[in-house]
Amino acid sequence: MYTQAMDIPDESGNPGGKKLSVVSAPQSEQEAAFEARIDADGRIEPQDWMPEAYRKTLVRQISQHAHSEVVGMLPEGNWISRAPSLKRKAILIAKVQDEGGHGLYLYSAAETLGTGRDEMIAGLLSGRAKYSSIFNYPTLNWADVGVIGWLVDGAAIMNQIPLCRCSYGPYARAMIRVCKEESFHQRQGYEALLVMMKGTEAQRRMVQDAVDRLWWKCLAMFGPPDADSPHSAQGMRWGIKRVSNDELRQKFIDATVPQAKVLGVTLPDPDLKWNEARGHHDYGQIDWQEFWNTVEGNGPCNKERLATRVKAHEDGRWVREAALAHARKQQARASKEAA
């Protein structure tokens, strides 16, 4: 899934509130080489020199993305035990497992920048690090699972396709794999909804209810309007961000409207209509006040999501300690034998 990372400063990020200059004047050979590689659309690799601010921005973005994958397991996991057929149960478990897998390789990509997984997870559990706000909304009926696949993963793909060309090599490569799996999830989600729409009236109501609740939240996933997006300019300059929030949002809406029509659901926006002159759909106002409330921790499920991550971590401590203790004992036994 996805994080609106570039736009959501962590409390840990950018210490001292120092402003990042958009185009910094190269001060050393190393910096000049870095800037030249960025200008030539080349890849930065872990062993390459990079400015500290670039490193920090990437650690923040990639770890937020990893946290989003891991927290994102919870709203969908909520329906595993109740999936209404064995086929859908298997698909859902595999999907949630994929999200966990994305979390793993994103943590690994971030580790190439010199920050350990434990440190990143500590940031999440303390509430310092952010994750995508879309996961702070409840999943209230089975159709939410399909709509998360169709719309949430759909929005994630819009955001992540450009990241496959991100200037930082390990992140770009991780995103190629993530995007392939997300497209698969999106098609699966849409297919599940198509089947439900051909079912009973109650099933069609479930699908519409899920779309009504999630549509606006998905539009907000692209982050604040470009005018209010503080990190975007530097991100664009560094080749970390490639397409602006508003452009991505528009692309998502234009792609989704015909899909909604085929599905037979209404998108809950009376202002949504085709604008011939722009060649795009016009759409209504996103409730940014509600979005920021949720980002700041006061959405419907923030406390439950975070507390659940904390509990899993605390409850699992003895397991991790056992694995470590066993490994140490084995090592000790091996060196004793060798001696």
Partner: peptide, 19 residues
Amino acid sequence: DAEWCGHGPILEEDLALAN
């Protein structure tokens, strides 16, 4: 076993139990 999905002691075990 699926009850552990999202609650495992470490991410690798979440994936293993889901498997």
